[in-house]
Design a protein around this nucleic acid. Structure first.
Length: 638
DNA sequence: CTAGGGTTAG
């Protein structure tokens, strides 16, 4: 690249060869050729109007030809344009050819690196600035502190104090953000409280800090006290809820935002789509889709991918695929979302075909891609395919398997009955297994009745204090099935004593653009009465179809009648009952559950789909179940 | 003689 060499070489010899390799001069520069002297402000305007590197290069060439490339303003503007086109290589080269860069140029080049997360380079420029005797000002500090890690940030903090810039609102906000990103909420709050004047941006930075570190309610408190709000702080607050599994509150806030006529932007819509996906709120998701189309929001790869993710998590794979096919310049994230979508729905062949397409187009798979592929294999029970991709990932793509990949493999092997193979895989892992992974193997032991191995693992987990709420339940199932009542009693004592609690099962269903959530035995819904009447009717149908409740999966130490009752009010059954009374006959019922569906609910849902002639789609923690006319798309294999 | 530089969401 002669052009690059020209820019990086310490002396600037412009040879004929260099010039001939430049892009052809644009109409503008051809025009300038005739008037050898163009006023700098005209050139400045030309630079500012340039929208691509191919427009910029001929102007740069022109500047060099006319000895204007060291003009402080013009080279400054040129580097700013290069930076905004993410060509920091050209920016840096230009900087190094500038004789005595002033504080403006230094600040701009520091900023350019900081926004691209190149902290070290930004710091290098800052040090260079100091050694060259150029004095930094408040502008320099706010630029360098942006995206600066906490350790160098602390050093810069003390320097800012020395220079007296820490009371500047921009510098103070940037400092607050440094501590916030470093997780030091207390220092961030202190900087915030002692701030001379709090701006909208500094408030937003503080809200971001709380939202990021789990105190969503603390964030909301500040948010509610704001005098003015812009789209950014709304986005922060909505995203705070979404990132902490409180998507329903996110959507409530989004509706308030719309009610106050605040115009959502792309970031808002990406967050809201994610919330819709979490909740299975496809009606609102579709509304967001039409908003994108009708409000001139650019349909880029980010928006496209968010829509694919939303539609597939809401059970509308066809729509996901339609959107996916519309995305131009698909990146690996876009491919991953569609592959994972197919995998979630048990469409193993489509997932694998998409993987082949993706590789053929030269897109390199990531660890996420293989989570999709391996879980697709697991859902189909394809053991040899699974091993093939597991090895392909390590050998061909040099991706070290993470705990999630082992999870897919253990699930695949375990469900297929290759328990010893799964156990060996875990024992030979380079990373430490977690309770979830052991739980997967324990579940497989229970499924295949291998209580011997189950007890070995169980003892090991209990002795190493590795059992969690999920594994305790499996443990007691296995002990009970093996007739080890001492074990059952011991687990029960540990669960009570250690404060181990099962994560409450929660099912949600969207009706009329609103998401209704149900916990087991929930009575909070305004239509509770009708729901329980429907539930009773459902059980009359079920019994007429020869259904017997699987009371053996209930862990509590209660009588048979109570066991039956506790099964009846599982959250997904309440959601289905509500779905039945609040939609037209024949309409599909879509449920989202936070845990894996239990086998009793699976049986019941199959029967209900047959009795009512309705399609019922259930998304559980692991995958989708499409219930049609008495059978499920998972083939009872989940 | 003057131009030009900064903080928050993803």
């Amino acid at each position: 690249m002669p052009w690059a060499t020209l820019l990086t070489s310490p002396s600037p010899p412009i040879t004929t060869a260099n010039r001939s390799s430049l892009p052809p001069p644009s109409a503008a520069t051809r025009h300038h050729h005739h008037h050898h002297r163009l006023p700098p402000d005209r050139l400045a305007l030309l630079i500012d109007k340039s929208k691509s590197i191919t427009q910029l290069l001929p102007i740069h060439a022109f500047l060099i030809r006319h000895g204007l490339d060291r003009h402080p303003i013009l080279s400054f503007k040129l580097q700013r344009s290069y930076s905004s086109l993410r060509r920091l290589d050209y920016s840096t080269a230009l900087f190094h050819r500038t004789q005595n860069p002033d504080v403006f140029f230094y600040t701009a080049i520091i900023h350019a690196h900081a926004v691209n997360n190149l902290h070290q380079q930004a710091l290098d420029f800052y040090v260079r600035m100091l050694t060259h005797g150029v004095e930094p000002n408040a502008f320099t500090f706010s630029a360098i502190l942006r995206s600066c890690p906490i350790e160098p940030g602390k050093a810069l903090h003390s320097q800012a104090l020395k220079f007296g810039f820490d009371s500047d609102t921009y510098v103070r906000t940037a400092l607050l953000d440094v501590y916030a990103r470093g997780g030091d909420v207390v220092s961030a709050r202190h900087l915030f409280d002692t701030m001379p004047d709090k701006s909208l941006v500094s408030l937003t930075a503080m809200i971001t800090c709380y939202a990021k570190h789990g105190d969503v309610d603390g964030a909301r408190l500040l948010f509610d006290g704001m005098e003015e709000r812009d789209v950014v702080c709304w986005n922060v607050m909505i995203d705070g809820y979404t990132q902490h599994g409180r998507s329903n509150e996110a959507l409530v806030l989004f509706r308030q935002m719309l009610g106050l006529k605040v115009k959502p932007n792309e970031v808002t819509l990406l967050t809201v789509l994610s919330a819709c996906g979490q909740l299975g709120a496809v009606e609102l998701g579709r509304w967001v889709h039409s908003y994108v189309v009708n409000n001139g929001i650019r349909f880029d790869v980010h928006v496209g991918t968010a829509l694919v993710d939303m539609y597939s998590k809401c059970g509308s794979l066809e729509d996901a695929r339609l959107v996916f096919d519309m995305i131009e310049d698909k990146d690996v994230v876009a491919w991953n979302s569609m592959i994972v979508g197919y995998a979630m729905h048990g469409f193993t062949e489509d997932a694998l075909k998409l993987f082949t397409d993706m590789c053929r187009r030269g897109v390199h798979p990531t660890d996420i891609t293989f989570i999709g592929i391996l879980s697709a294999c697991a859902h189909a029970g394809s053991v040899s395919e699974g091993w093939k991709f597991f090895h392909l990932m390590k050998d061909e793509y040099q991706i070290e398997p993470k705990i999630e990949h082992y999870g897919c493999m253990v699930n695949l092997l375990g469900r297929a009955g290759h328990l010893d193979e799964a156990y060996e895989l875990i024992k030979n892992m380079k990373i430490d297994p977690d309770p979830v992974l052991w739980g997967t193997l324990l579940g497989a032991c229970r499924l295949h009745g291998n209580y011997g191995l189950g007890e070995v693992i169980a003892e090991q987990l209990v002795s190493q204090n590795l059992a969690n709420s999920g594994t305790y339940i499996l443990l007691s199932n296995i002990y009970a099935a093996a007739g080890n009542w001492d074990g059952v009693a011991r687990v029960r004592t540990m669960m009570k004593g250690g404060g181990v609690q099962k994560e409450p099962g929660c099912s949600s269903i969207e009706v009329n653009n609103k998401v209704h959530e149900f916990l087991a035995g929930d009575l909070r819904h305004p239509k509770s009465k009708q729901i329980y009447v429907m539930l009773e009717e459902m059980y009359q149908w079920l019994e007429a179809h020869g259904y017997t409740p699987q009371t053996d999966i209930v862990l509590h130490d209660i009588g048979e009648f109570e066991k039956k009752r506790s099964l009846e009010v599982h959250s997904e059954k309440l959601a289905i009952a509500f779905g039945l009374i609040s939609s037209q006959p024949g309409a599909t019922i879509k449920i989202v559950k936070n845990l894996r569906v239990c086998s009793d609910c699976h049986t019941v849902t199959k029967l209900i789909s047959k009795i009512t002639g309705r399609k019922i789609v259930v998304r559980d923690r692991n995958r989708f179940h499409h219930f049609v006319n008495g059978s499920c798309s998972c083939g009872d294999y989940w």
